[in-house]
Every structure is written in structure tokens, then in C-alpha cells.
Write a protein that binds this DNA or RNA. Structure first.
Length: 421
DNA sequence: TCTGGGGTCCTAGGACCC
DNA sequence: TCTGGGGTCCTAGGACCC
């Protein structure tokens, strides 16, 4: 018997989170900006219909926003991840088999349930009632088809946010009406290429006879997409959260940075943050990288520097890591450039306990591990950065990001809890 | 003036070995 | 000047996702 998957996706998730605490903003244009108040990364329907697409730099549409009284927020991920957890907890009530796919999406295995359409409507209602976050649901026999159904649910109003594609006929119609570029896994490059091959819709790809050709041209993944469109499960449900294989932390600066010492502080901070993530999943890392760069958009006087170190023995000690980070920074820093972004990269991650002994370097000793854990606990309790390494600096940060439209931390942080009157 | 951040997977090709 | 064949491992880069 074939599977039945539902994809539940929160509508304009970040915007919905902000609206939750500002209900007067419902039915008005609202947008959430990326880090540094750069681009829109979440837009309400009303804002989209003003002609502002996803990813638009804020400064380009500032006038439009003012004129139309758009409410703009800086991103507030502490809030979003908290609300995400609530949504996921609610969803978990409906099936024992579920995959949290991203901050605002989850796949639910509904195989064996009766009257799926009704059940999906019930799920939608319950989530909205319990969390206040509106969702759309798409159901079909593979993840790719569920995703496609979900897109329809979001796009077409008369579906009331739920689309079920289980019979051949409804699938035929849906796939025929879906441009190839809208298929999950078909990005810009494949979109262009497939159209050149005469594959314009999802249905064209599904029904294309020469599978070997698809595989040759679009790799194993391309073929999997085609088979998923036929309703065969190729992407399975991942119920367990796998530890990350690499960790990054990078930021654009709020203003330009020129001096090595400021870059060092940025790197120390990013490294600390990346290592906190590393320790949270009980990993050690065997490779550390750092990059710095000038503006991506400015012409002339461009520089991108990056380098990495392979560690003889893996570590989870932030202090060691910051030292290595500085070493790399010394190699790549060039004076005279206007730096706009820096980042760190952790690779060759291993689960603690799986490490292979090296003859050449000492492992983190018990004491340093304990110290790190203690810092993590305190920072978790008191807020990020309550305790940090001296290298991170305490002065006013030229490199810190802009967050001019930040909402209060409604759900985390004691000082900013909502007051009940 | 002002343009995000963080991941995964796949493949081709080089290095190296016998 | 001629110059095998096959395997593995690693890396960089490209593609995709949210």
C-alpha cells in the first residue's frame, strides 16, 4: 500500500508570529526583514500584493512601505523558534510518525487514516486554535506530491487551505497546472534546462519516458523527483533529528569594518556561538574555517579571504577554537579593505566518544569540558553572552548587526514578558 | 547610504596506490 | 618517443532547500 503524507506549512510564518502579539496587524501589510534589516524574508499576503517579492532589499521599497503603512519587523528568531515548537507539539498529537522539516514545516505520515480530507481540516483548525498560527496542508502519496499539494492549498483561496491529491485524476490536473520550476527540488538551473528539453510542467517530467536520460542529465536526485511525482516514495520520513555535519556562523556587519582587531572580535563571537551549537549536539569538530569579505554588491576593491585548519585532534573547546580562528584570520586579513562580512565554519564533526586518538596533540581535558558546559548552562539561563571569552570584546561593536525594528521578546526573557492587566 | 544565514547532497576530477 | 588499468579517497564546486 502506498504511503499518505501530509505537509503542514505555516502561512507567512514569521509575519504570523509577529501578528500573534499585535492582532491589529491582521489583514494589514506586514513584513519581516533578514538579519541586519537587509531583505524581506517573510511577507504577508497584503504586502505581496503591493508587488514586493520575497527577498527584496528593504531600502529599495522603503517609499512603497511608508506610503502603504507597511509594518516592518527585524527578525526575532528567539520568538519564532519558540512558537515553532508549539506548532510542532500540537502536530505531534495527530500521528506518531512525523518529521520536522524546517522551522515552519512538518511532514506527517497519515497512512491508514480514514477520511483524510476531513482529518486534515481538523488538524488545521486545531493548530490554529491552539497556537494562533495559520497553516496550509497538502496531502498525497509522496513528499514531493504533498509539497505540490501544499503549494496549491496556499495559492488557491477556495481550497480553504487544504488540498488532498490521492486519486489519479486530481493528480493529473494538479501536475498539469504546476510549472516545472515550482516542483520541489527543481531550482533555477534545472528549471531552465528542463524547459529546454520540453518539460514545462510537473506532468511533463512525471510522464517523460526515458528515465535513464533523466538520471544521466539530472543525477540520481533528478530521477528521484520524477519518481516521487509518480507517487512513489523516494524521500523517506526522517523522524530522528540527525546531528549536523557542519556548522556555520556568519553575519554581515552593521557598518563597515577595517581593522583586524574588530574582525577578531567578530570571529571570536561567531566562533563562540558556533561552538555552543556544537556542544549542544555533543559533537567535536576536526576542521575550523574562517572567511572575511568585502561587500557582495559594491564594485571595485573587492576581496574575499578564506582559509581553514585541520585539527590533529578534534575539539569542542571554544578557547582553543578562537585561537585557531585568529591564526587563520592573520593569514587572510589584508589591510585597506572595507569588510562587510565575516564567518566561521566547523567541519569534520564527530559525535563525542567516537574520536580516534592522535599521538600528536592533547584532547580537551575534563576540566576544560566542564568549564565549557558550565558556561553553556549559565548562558542558557541568563541569556546569550552572559558569560563570554575576553576575546569577544565588550565595547560598542562596529560590526554588530542592525536591528532597528525588533519586537520585544514576548515569550523568552523574563524582563520582557507580556504584562497581564 | 542601505542587498540574510545556515544547511544538505551529488559529481567530477585530482592525488595516490598497486 | 613510447607511457596500463583499476581502485579509493578527498575536495571543490554546483545545485538545491528553508
Amino acid at each position: 500500500m502506498s504511503k499518505v503524507y501530509a505537509l503542514v506549512d505555516c502561512n507567512s510564518f514569521f509575519v504570523s508570529c509577529e501578528r500573534l502579539f499585535r492582532p491589529e496587524l491582521i489583514n494589514t501589510p506586514v513584513g519581516v526583514l533578514s538579519n541586519n534589516d537587509g531583505c524581506f524574508i517573510s511577507l504577508s499576503r497584503e504586502l505581496k500584493s503591493l508587488g514586493v517579492p520575497m527577498g527584496t532589499p528593504y531600502f529599495k521599497v522603503r517609499t512603497i512601505c511608508k506610503k502603504n503603512k507597511v509594518t516592518v519587523f527585524s527578525s526575532n528568531f528567539a520568538l519564532y523558534s519558540n512558537l515553532s515548537n508549539r506548532v510542532m507539539k500540537t502536530l505531534a498529537q495527530f500521528t506518531p510518525r512525523m518529521e520536522i522539516y524546517s522551522i515552519d514545516e512538518a511532514f506527517l505520515d497519515l497512512t491508514g487514516f480514514k477520511d483524510i480530507h476531513c482529518y486534515a481540516k481538523f488538524i488545521k483548525k486545531k493548530v490554529e486554535k491552539d497556537t494562533g498560527i495559520p497553516v496550509s496542508i497538502g496531502v498525497s502519496t509522496s513528499k514531493t506530491l504533498a509539497k505540490l499539494a501544499n503549494n496549491m492549498a496556499k495559492k488557491t483561496k477556495r481550497t480553504n487551505g487544504v488540498v488532498v491529491l490521492l486519486d489519479q485524476q486530481s493528480q493529473d490536473v494538479a501536475l498539469h497546472n504546476t510549472p516545472i520550476g515550482k516542483v520541489w527540488g527543481v531550482g533555477r538551473a534545472l528549471d531552465v534546462d528542463m524547459q529546454l528539453m520540453g518539460l514545462y510542467t510537473a506532468k511533463d517530467l512525471r510522464d517523460y519516458k526515458n528515465s535513464a536520460h533523466i538520471k544521466k542529465k539530472y543525477t540520481k536526485v533528478g530521477l528521484q523527483i520524477k519518481e516521487e511525482l509518480q507517487g512513489h516514495e523516494r524521500f523517506t520520513l526522517e523522524q530522528t533529528v540527525k546531528p549536523k555535519k557542519s556548522i556555520m556562523c556568519s553575519r554581515s556587519f552593521g557598518s563597515s569594518v577595517y581593522r583586524l582587531e574588530d574582525l577578531r572580535k567578530a570571529v571570536a563571537n561567531y566562533m563562540s556561538s558556533a561552538f555552543e551549537t556544537l556542544r549542544k549536539q555533543n559533537s567535536t569538530c576536526g576542521e575550523i574555517g574562517v572567511f572575511i569579505r568585502t561587500s557582495r554588491h559594491k564594485k571595485g576593491h573587492i576581496y574575499r579571504g578564506s582559509n581553514h585548519i585541520k585539527l590533529l585532534s578534534p575539539t569542542s573547546d571554544s578557547r582553543k577554537a578562537v585561537g585557531y580562528g585568529f591564526e587563520i584570520l592573520n593569514r587572510i586579513y589584508k589591510k585597506g579593505y572595507e569588510y562587510k562580512k565575516a564567518g566561521v565554519y566547523l567541519g569534520k564533526l564527530q559525535q563525542e566518544g567516537n574520536k580516534q586518538l592522535s599521538l600528536f596533540e592533547n584532547y580537551d581535558n575534563e576540566r576544560s569540558l566542564k568549564l565549557m558546559k558550565t558556561i553553556d548552562v549559565i548562558n542558557h539561563r541568563e541569556g546569550k553572552g552572559a558569560i563570554k571569552l575576553a576575546a569577544c570584546g565588550i565595547d560598542n561593536k562596529s560590526w554588530a548587526m542592525n536591528r532597528n525594528f525588533l519586537s520585544p521578546r514576548y515569550v523568552s526573557g523574563w524582563s520582557q514578558l507580556l504584562k497581564v492587566k
